[in-house]
Structure formats: structure tokens, C-alpha cells
Design a binder for these strands. Structure first.
Ligand SMILES: [Zn+2]
Ligand SMILES: [Zn+2]
Ligand SMILES: [Zn+2]
Ligand SMILES: [Zn+2]
Lengths: 127, 127
DNA sequence: CCTTGCCTTGACATCGGGGGAAAGGTTTAG
DNA sequence: CTAAACCTTTCCCCCGATGTCAAGGCAAGG
């Protein structure tokens, strides 16, 4: 499997795959041409990468999962480093949710006040 | 009031103030020197900008609020354009919260499965 | 031979909100 | 006179994941 086919099968671009390689997430054998040659294990790796990127992980966070997959485990989640990243990410997401909830409350309060004072402030003006 | 004093009073940098100016959020009179000269209304504008930036608005979203302030209203929220941006932002925040909640559920599920299968999969290996 | 379609590396552009530095003008105090 | 402390404009840098050429090598079909 060459890089174009892998990209198509994984639903991404060749540019992205080369980028993952330069960041140590993907390794490829080379044919006599110098072309990158991949197998189905690489396809699984790329799918894992894409999934985690979609969730919001950065490439550095993804590396443990890929290492875990390449260590022969059927899932990238099982190795201790992956679990640690999962825990950290859950904490980050929780913090993000809490922050956004507070922002939402604040916005809703501003909106309410703005709507209430719109008649008395705004409608008698040009704006 | 010159730019350094405004920056200090608003809790930001001169660089940021010039940046806001180039993006149409702030306007300054010039003294004979060519120095930017500000007044208290500008201080209120900058405080509004900083507040909204802190909430997560982009500069383009902030422009209606600034225009509203400069139109003489005591609050930047009351003009229709500001209200529209507020509504849109609330919707965006709601969508973001929902997305993060789903991500959280997914991560928690992965973590649970990973911990359960860690003994049977991982501890008998080198990893 | 020529075109087409793969592949290679390398390098520049993007987005947002600035940071930091260069190179110079102005004013005030010592 | 000079140093300090302001101010001015202009330009390059950052992050992260990718798009997008550019310039060229390799294989296969007409
Ligand atoms: Zn393991
Ligand atoms: Zn409501
Ligand atoms: Zn109004
Ligand atoms: Zn739990």
C-alpha cells in the first residue's frame, strides 16, 4: 500500500501522513523507488490518530497510543502512558466544560440585561 | 492620556492597543508630536474589549459592542448587533459544551475499558 | 516519445492575538 | 550635553495541523 492509498483509506491526505511521520507517529518501509510502503497495521495507526485528533488531542498526546498499538496491543488505550493521557485529558475537558458553563451564565446575564434596557436606552435613539 | 498610561490603566500593553486600532476597534486623536491621545471614553472601550476577549470573543465579534459604546450608550450590550452577537455566542458556547460533554463520555468509556483490560492485556508483557 | 499519474523533498502560507526588537523622534530632568 | 523615558513605524516570530505550490524522479499505457 502506497501513501496515496493509505490516505484515501484513512480518510485524510498524504500531506498529513508525512507530517505524522516527521513527528514520530508513523513509520514506513521504503520500496526500491524510495516510495513509502504501508500495511494494515499502519492503517489502524492512522485511524487511531485521526480519531484522537478529532477528539481534541494534540500529536504529542497521541504518541503513547500509537506506541501502544505498535507494541502489539489490540487497543491503543491499554498502556499506562495512554491511561495517564486519558486521565489528564478528562480533567482538561472537565475544566473546559466548567469554564464554558461560567461563560454561558455570564453571557446569558448580559443578554437579559441588554434586552431589558434596550427599549429605554436604544429605541429612542438613531441606533 | 497617552498610550502608555492607557495601557497601564486598562491592564494591557501598548502593542495590544495599537493592534486594536489597526483592526478598527480603537481610534485616537494625535497631538502635535504625532502621539496618540486618549480620554476616559477610550478607557471604557478598552475595558470592554478586554472583558469580551477574556470571555472568548474574537476582535471581529467585539466591534459591534465598541460601536455601541461609541454611539453614546452606557453599556456596549444594548445595540441590536451586540445582542445578535451575544445570542450567537451563547449558541456557540452551548454547542461547545455539548461537544465536550460527548468527548468526556467517550474518554471516560475508553478509560474504563482500558483499566479493565489492562491486567489481562498489559501486565503479562514488557510494557 | 509523450502524457498521465503516482511518488519524493522542501519551503511558504494560513489563523489570532499579540511579543519583541530595531531604528528613530520628543521631552524633561540633571 | 546627555541620559532617561516616553512615543512612532515596521518587520519578524510564535503556536499546530495542514494546504499548496515547486521541481523533479519513476512507471505504465498509447
Ligand atoms: Zn501495554
Ligand atoms: Zn433566558
Ligand atoms: Zn443602541
Ligand atoms: Zn468513572
Amino acid at each position: 500500500m502506497l501513501i496515496g492509498e493509505l490516505a484515501e483509506r484513512a480518510g485524510t491526505s498524504t500531506r498529513a501522513l508525512r507530517y505524522y511521520e516527521t513527528h514520530g507517529l508513523l513509520s514506513a518501509a521504503r520500496s526500491a523507488n524510495g516510495y513509502r510502503v504501508y500495511d494494515d497495521a499502519d492503517l489502524r495507526v492512522v485511524r487511531e490518530i485521526r480519531t484522537l485528533l478529532g477528539i481534541g488531542f494534540g500529536l504529542d498526546d497521541i504518541r503513547p497510543f500509537v506506541d501502544c498499538l505498535r507494541a502489539g496491543h489490540s487497543s491503543g488505550d491499554v498502556c499506562p502512558d495512554s491511561v495517564a493521557v486519558l486521565r489528564r485529558k478528562i480533567a482538561e475537558v472537565d475544566a473546559g466544560i466548567e469554564r464554558m458553563r461560567q461563560v454561558r451564565e455570564r453571557l446569558h446575564g448580559q443578554l437579559t440585561v441588554a434586552i431589558e434596557s434596550r427599549e429605554s436606552t436604544c429605541s429612542s435613539r438613531t441606533c
